[in-house]
């Protein structure tokens, strides 16, 4: 099981050069049944990462490009009158896929955003009174552009909380970029990737991840972290219980990727920046979610023992 995952990582890293840490976190996020928010400038490989993940994991892939005129129906699907049968027939939207890439999510209006986010949260879609389940696994990678641009709708805190992790790919290292320049087009490479898993296998792995042991001492560490965010003055607000659950789920997946069936404090620390960074805000910084220094503080000050 672990070797399969290692192989997946290797294969993704072969396409997305020099981003081992982020790739590992993205896979962790997938294993923990969470959704991923990629925040980066255009052209940093967000789409490539999503594509590669979908292919390697053998997941059905759909991409939704969010624009300001995107309607909820464009995401979820609509019923169309069918002349032949004389009935309304439901045409499922792009959300009915196992891996959905929601590109530039902050371009769309809050209404469309919330249609996606509700579907993410509930794992099902209710259209015209009928409830339709989404496929399982269901994994959303949303990307957003961090630069302050006109005509965007930043996701509010309550919506950000629904993403298990927020990652930023960042510029590639010099060596990696050179390799990128010298190599062929990545789209070609993508087309040749063979899936290593399928969704039943992924299911099994996810179930295994949920069984990773969390000891009392470790739960106490997570609680200490959460309490620190709730009591220390520099935090504008504390982590929600959903946040602490997310932290533990991600730590479990990380431990599993590391080949362990129990979580140790280092696992929590490894996923902490990605999991809590977008859920925290510094009190002295009323704009934006500059959780970075706060996360560093947590890692530095909260005793893990």
């Amino acid at each position: 099981m672990l070797s399969e995952l290692e192989a997946c990582l290797t294969r993704i890293n072969a396409v997305l050069l020099g981003k081992e840490a982020q790739v590992r976190l993205a896979v962790t996020c997938l294993l923990a049944r969470g959704h991923l928010l990629l925040e980066d400038l255009p052209g940093m490989g967000k789409t490539t990462l999503s594509h590669t993940l979908a292919r390697v994991m053998g997941l059905a892939f759909q991409r939704i490009q969010f624009t300001s005129d995107l309607l909820p129906g464009d995401i979820l699907g609509t019923s169309v009158f069918d002349r032949d049968s004389g009935r309304f027939v439901f045409h499922p939207g792009p959300i009915f896929a196992e891996l959905v890439l929601a590109d530039e999510i902050n371009r769309a209006t809050p209404k469309s955003q919330s249609a996606l986010l509700e579907a993410m949260e509930e794992g099902q879609v209710t259209i015209e009174g009928a409830t339709r389940p989404l496929p399982d696994p269901f994994f959303v990678i949303a990307t957003q552009n961090p630069a302050n641009q006109g005509g965007t709708f930043a996701l509010p805190e309550s919506q950000l909380d629904r993403f298990l992790m927020r990652l930023s790919l960042g510029y590639p290292a010099r060596e990696a970029e050179k390799a990128l320049l010298m190599g062929g087009t990545r789209r070609d490479a993508l087309a040749h990737i063979e899936p290593l898993l399928d969704h039943t296998r992924l299911h099994e792995i996810q179930a295994e991840v949920a069984r990773v042991r969390v000891s009392d001492a470790l739960a106490d560490y997570v609680l200490r972290l959460v309490e620190a965010t709730r009591t220390q003055p520099q935090f504008a607000w504390g982590l929600s219980p959903r946040g602490s659950l997310a932290l533990l789920a991600a730590a479990r997946a990380w431990a599993f990727l590391d080949g362990r069936d129990y979580v140790i404090p280092e696992d929590v620390q490894a996923v902490l920046p990605a999991v809590v960074g977008h859920r925290l805000r510094e009190r002295a910084d009323p704009t934006g979610l500059g959780g970075g220094t706060l996360v560093q503080w947590l890692l530095r000050e909260v005793p893990p023992l």
Binding site: E227, T231, Q232, P233, F235, R283
Partner: peptide, 14 residues
Amino acid sequence: RNLAGLRLQSGRTH
């Protein structure tokens, strides 16, 4: 015993 085991933690101060 009424004090033993009690945890005190200072909170944020503006």
